[in-house]
Simulated scan of single mutants.
Amino acid sequence: MSENKFLSGIMNSTPDRHSLLEDAQGIITGSMITCVGIMMLKAGGLLTGGTAGLAFLLFYTSGMSFGLAFFLVNLPFYYFAWRRVGLAFTVKTFIAVGLTSALTSIVPQFVTIGDTNPFAGGLFGGMLVGAGLLIFFRHSASLGGFGILGLYLQDRFGIKAGYVQMVLDGMVLVMSFFVASPYIIICSVAGAVVINMVLAINHRRDRYVAM
């Protein structure tokens, strides 16, 4: 009886709440999709906004692996997530960031994306990253950093998470002028806009209520 109850808790969902199994597959799927999107951005020599953008800056300027840089720059945001959004969100976000960081370090050893036109890389890479973030958001997780702040402001004040991230992403991209050419910056901005438009258009609590 206790075993059946345990399995029921893992597998059963309700109209307004995901099961543990659904959350697990969502975080894994989101991490895989985001990993491929990041690989496309890297193949085009692009940057992006948010903590991923900060990780790209470290990657291009210090030689640190993107996965490690991405994990480290997100560490300060976990306390804010725990205090403002909740423990469950913080734990799932920590797992999502850790898994995505690991995949971006491991997957390129098995899958290679060749030379990529920067503009195409921005559009397609941005679309994939945006889709990955959308999956995370719908399972009450994020990729840390600005995503945490965006979700908090949306839930607390009704400001769309995508628009919040777009403003903050722009600030990160301004710093990119020190490490990239104007054309690469333009293509990077296009990718950042795609990411955040995917979120702004598709992530609405009144349309998707499961947690």
Rank of each mutant, 00 (worst) to 15 (best):
V194N: 03
A190L: 10
W82L: 13
M197G: 13
M166K: 00
L57A: 15
V193R: 03
A81G: 04
N202G: 06
A69I: 00
L151E: 06
P182E: 04
A131V: 09
I95D: 02
A69P: 02
L68N: 14
N202V: 05
T116F: 11
F66V: 01
S13Q: 06
S101T: 00
I95P: 03
K5V: 10
M171R: 14
G162D: 00
R83Q: 15
G37R: 00
M40T: 10
F178I: 11
F70L: 04
M40P: 06
G125Y: 02
S8G: 12
S31Y: 06
F177Q: 07
L68E: 08
T29L: 13
L173D: 05
M166W: 00
M64K: 05
M197Q: 09
Q109C: 15
L99R: 03
H18T: 10
C35A: 07
V129H: 02
A81M: 14
T61N: 10
S2Y: 09
D16A: 11
V164Y: 01
D16C: 09
G126Y: 12
S13H: 08
I159F: 08
S62Y: 13
F136T: 09
F110E: 02
L128H: 05
I135E: 04
G67H: 03
T116W: 09
P76R: 08
R83M: 09
A131Y: 14
Q25R: 12
S19R: 06
T93S: 10
T90P: 06
Y208T: 11
I186V: 14
K42R: 15
P108Y: 00
A43G: 04
G191M: 05
I33N: 01
R83D: 05
A52H: 05
V107Y: 01
V179P: 08
I10E: 05
C35T: 06
P15R: 00
I159E: 06
S105T: 14
V189L: 15
G63P: 03
A141Q: 02
I113C: 02
A52K: 03
G158N: 04
S181Q: 13
S13P: 07
G49Q: 00
